[in-house]
Amino acid sequence: MSFFKVCNLSISFGGLAALNDVSFEVQKGQIFAIIGPNGAGKTTLFNCINGIYTPDEGEVFFKDQKINGLRPDRIARLGIARTFQNIELFNHMNTMENLMLGRHLHMKSNLFRGVGMWGPHSFAGQEEIAHRRKVEEIIDFLGLQSARNQPVGGLPYGTQKQIELGRALASEPEFLLLDEPCAGMNAEEKQDMIFWIKDIQDELGITILLIEHDMNMVMDISDHILAINFGGMITEGTPSDVQKHPEVLKAYLGEEDGEGSA
């Protein structure tokens, strides 16, 4: 059984091929990184995986089940969670409520049970208490105590990134997609984030698919790397292999002009 597999995925927007014949496989327990310059199609790939876009061609398999074409909420139900490059939090809710929304899939209160929340012993009351406990664990894990009752819209950028990670973790995923978790963070926040990502892999046993521009970080924590550019695959392999690949060097460092050294 393969854990997660993308086969010959292609999608184009009005003649522009955003992704062209991309295939790769992620093993359970890995940190798998996708690198590539801006506009390479990394976020498009994420959007195809969790159902925001429907790919034109190709297939996506999660635990041998085909998931492309399913609605985003169905895919979430299978155990795939994600964060966004441009933070997509529920700004007017506080941190607690944002994380509680992450528990949505695991809660059962429907309209009638919600309306009938008469006291802590009602079904909805019981459920709120039980899931608040879970959320509290995540708040402890990410050190978000001071932000607990603050509306997230007004919190610092780095904290918002953490809360987004927390919300994804609250849904207890098996497979976590992180879209540039360290973008715009200072060195210290980056270190914390790297630490958490390692912890998520080691302690929670969650497989991670990661998009990141910070090469040091990617080389440091990834088990496997896929490099893409202009929607196509350049190479994939272990960090040390990918680092040496001439196409990757070209995409990241620019081409030598071939006139010899000055």
Partner: peptide
């Protein structure tokens, strides 16, 4: 607040 994010959370 953010319908896409809500959908990806289930």
């Amino acid at each position: 607040e953010a319908d896409i994010a809500a959908a990806t959370m289930g």
